[in-house]
Deep mutational scan, measured.
Amino acid sequence: RERTTFTRSQLEELEALFAKTQYPDVYAREEVALKINLPESRVQVWFKNRRAKCRQ
């Protein structure tokens, strides 16, 4: 699998949801995934990595 490159608009959507909740449920992830045209699994991994970045 190729590394996913997020567009600015995708990142804005993801960061907006992250500001609301660092642990979105599957419904919130699927909703944003549809909105930004990415698989839910990519959204899930983005949140995992974003939380790790936050802890550093």
Rank of each mutant, 00 (worst) to 15 (best):
A28N: 06
C54S: 15
Q44P: 01
P24S: 00
D25R: 02
V43G: 00
S9V: 09
V26G: 10
R55F: 06
Q22N: 11
A33K: 01
L38H: 10
S41Q: 12
V43A: 04
R50V: 01
R50F: 02
E15K: 03
D25E: 07
A33P: 00
L11N: 06
R42K: 15
R50D: 00
K53M: 15
K35Y: 01
L17F: 04
T7N: 07
K53W: 05
R1F: 15
L17T: 06
W46L: 00
V26H: 12
F6T: 07
F47R: 00
E13P: 04
R29P: 01
Q44M: 08
A28I: 08
L34R: 15
L17A: 05
L17P: 00
R1M: 10
L14D: 00
F6L: 12
R8G: 10
N37Y: 03
F6H: 07
F47Y: 03
K35A: 06
R42M: 15
R3K: 14
L17Y: 02
R8Y: 11
L17G: 01
S9W: 06
P24Y: 00
K20L: 09
R51M: 03
A52Q: 07
L11R: 09
L38Q: 09
C54Y: 13
A28G: 04
E2D: 07
L17N: 03
E31I: 07
S41A: 14
N37H: 11
F6I: 06
E2V: 06
V32H: 01
Y27N: 14
V45A: 09
P24W: 01
T5I: 11
N49F: 04
R3C: 05
Q56G: 10
E31M: 14
L17C: 06
K53F: 12
C54V: 13
L14G: 01
S41T: 12
L11A: 06
K35T: 05
Q10G: 03
Q22F: 04
R29C: 09
V32R: 00
K53I: 14
E12W: 07
E31Q: 11
V32P: 00
R51C: 03
R3T: 12
K53A: 10
R42V: 13
L11G: 07
L34P: 02
E40F: 05
E12L: 09
N49K: 07
T21R: 04
R3H: 11
E31L: 11
S41F: 06
L17S: 03
L11F: 05
L34M: 14
S41D: 14
R8S: 15
Q22D: 04
T7L: 04
T5M: 10
T5R: 10
R42G: 09
A33E: 00
K53N: 07
R50E: 14
R29Y: 06
Q10E: 10
Q44C: 14
R3E: 08
E13Q: 08
R8Q: 11
R1G: 09
A52D: 15
T21P: 01
A52R: 11
K20H: 12
R42W: 11
K48D: 14
F47D: 00
E15Y: 02
Y23I: 05
A33S: 10
E15P: 00
Y23T: 07
K53G: 14
S41M: 12
A33L: 00
N49A: 09
I36C: 15
R29L: 10
Q44Y: 11
P39G: 04
R51N: 05
L14I: 01
L14H: 00
R50I: 02
P24V: 00
A16C: 08
N49L: 08
E31V: 10
L38V: 14
E15D: 05
R8H: 14
Q22S: 08
C54T: 11
K53E: 12
K35D: 01
Y27Q: 08
N49I: 05
W46S: 02
L14Y: 03
F6A: 04
L14K: 01
F47P: 02
Q22L: 04
Y23E: 11
R50W: 03
L17E: 04
T7V: 04
L34F: 13
K20Y: 05
T4I: 12
R42C: 15
T4L: 13
A16H: 09
A16R: 13
A28D: 07
S9A: 14
F18S: 05
T5W: 06
D25F: 02
W46K: 00
K35M: 06
E2M: 13
A33T: 02
T5F: 09
E15A: 03
A19Q: 09
K35S: 05
F6V: 09
Q44D: 09
A16S: 13
R8F: 12
R42F: 04
I36D: 01
R29E: 02
R50Q: 15
R55Q: 07
K35L: 05
T7D: 10
Q56A: 15
Q10A: 07
E15G: 03
T5G: 10
T4Q: 08
E40T: 09
R29S: 09
P39F: 03
A19D: 13
E40I: 08
Q44K: 11
E40R: 09
W46A: 01
L17Q: 04
T7G: 05
E13G: 06
E40M: 13
E12V: 14
L14E: 00
L11E: 15
E40W: 03
K53Y: 07
C54D: 15
Q22K: 07
S9H: 13
A19Y: 06
S9G: 10
Y23R: 06
E31P: 00
P39C: 08
W46Q: 01
K48P: 01
W46F: 06
I36R: 01
K20P: 01
K35H: 04
F47L: 07
Q22E: 14
Q22Y: 04
V26W: 14
L14M: 06
Q56R: 12
S9I: 10
F6G: 04
V43T: 03
N49Q: 10
S41H: 10
P24A: 02
S41I: 08
W46N: 00
P39H: 05
K53H: 04
R1L: 07
V43H: 03
E13M: 12
E31H: 11
R51A: 04
A16N: 10
N37E: 13
A52Y: 08
R42Y: 06
T7P: 02
E31Y: 05
A19P: 02
E13S: 11
A52T: 12
R8I: 08
Q44S: 12
P39S: 09
V32T: 14
K35V: 02
A19V: 11
N49P: 00
N49V: 06
L34V: 13
I36H: 03
V45F: 02
N37I: 15
T7K: 06
N49G: 07
L38D: 01
E31D: 10
R55H: 07
R55A: 08
L14V: 01
V26C: 13
L34G: 13
A28V: 08
A52F: 08
A33I: 00
P39V: 06
T21D: 08
R50G: 01
N49E: 12
Q22H: 11
I36A: 11
R42A: 14
F47G: 01
E2S: 05
V32E: 03
N49S: 08
K20F: 05
T4Y: 13
T4V: 13
T4F: 09
E12H: 08
E2G: 09
A52I: 12
V32Q: 02
K53L: 12
L34E: 11
E15M: 03
T4C: 04
Q10S: 04
V43S: 01
R8A: 12
A28S: 10
I36V: 07
C54Q: 14
V26N: 06
R29F: 05
A16L: 10
Y23N: 07
L34H: 12
L34K: 14
P24R: 01
Q56L: 04
D25P: 07
P39Y: 01
E31G: 07
A28W: 02
T4P: 15
